[in-house]
Write a protein that binds this DNA or RNA. Structure first.
Lengths: 154, 154
DNA sequence: ATATATTTTCTAATTATATAAGCGATTAAA
DNA sequence: TTTAATCGCTTATATAATTAGAAAATATAT
């Protein structure tokens, strides 16, 4: 279980994982030791899954983002598992969610340009077995991209 | 511009932002100084937008994720800007994309449970002006959630 | 209520890392 | 060539992470 202090630590680290234990301690009115121990506990118990950096995708040439809704033809367990395995291997697919609704899966896809997207859809995705309908929605702008847990829950 | 070494650094830090310059230097066959300077450059030039942690959302009680497609009634600039501003204030909305296709926006929403989602849709979202159709897709499972730039682009 | 555990935090010391300075080597351009 | 400019190396210093042991606070049982 995490208490209020743990959540504040998570909030601060989410905002800036480079913050030192000293700075966090100062913010919370503690010394470094308890902060250090709490962080280790949060890591150990899996609250903190990963330390990472956010990279500006456009600066490394990934100019195009799209969401791709996919429905399968066959919904037997074996077919579903096969699809979910195949998806792991497609680098362009950043995220993949199994959803309820009109389609079975929602994919978030990142590629350099429309050409690459074309190749992704027609060469890679269409090559998988069991693909039914595919519908693409192109991202024109990212209005909000926090990718973080809102403070109100921390 | 980033060269091959810079990209490798980005790749390593994306995987584990806690990696020390010493470790990175060892991986790349360099000493700490050039690695340190390159990292500072990557920060300065905005390739690295943020150091952050990934938090296990379910461990902090956010059991439900949904995608919410929204279309607006009025598409004049002023109305669009108003909507995009309003969205920033809704904590449950983690991401918001302006998309082309059947709907205008795709929202990624995180809430504790179905009750909270219900309140979000009927109290918060529906309270905004200019909302046309809304269609929710609930996430049943996260098949892939890399949230990262694929290695092939780094 | 009191004594006993348990947990949490503190201070202080140690170890490791980040950061900076100065020098040499390589590369590119004049 | 010769001059810049870039890049990486070694060494030194400042800063941070981590550990150890004692004190304080909290919870538990008698």
């Amino acid at each position: 279980m995490v208490d209020k202090i743990d959540k504040q630590i998570l909030r601060l680290l989410q905002l800036d994982a480079k913050k030192t234990t000293k700075e966090i301690a100062a913010d919370l009115g503690l010394t470094t030791t308890p902060v250090h121990e709490r962080i280790k506990k949060l890591e150990r118990e899996g609250y903190i899954q990963q330390y990472s950096i956010r990279i500006d995708r456009k600066k490394v040439g990934l100019m195009m983002m799209a969401f791709c809704s996919v429905s399968l033809k066959n919904h037997e367990r074996a077919f579903i598992e096969k699809f979910e395995q195949d998806i792991q291997l497609l680098d362009e697919v950043i995220d993949c969610y199994h959803i309820g609704g009109m389609f079975d899966y929602l994919l978030k896809v990142l590629v350099p340009d429309m050409d690459a997207y074309q190749r992704f859809i027609s060469k890679k995705l269409a090559d998988l077995d069991n693909i039914g309908n595919v519908q693409s929605s192109f991202v024109m702008s990212e209005i909000k991209h926090s990718a973080q847990i809102p403070d109100q829950f921390l």
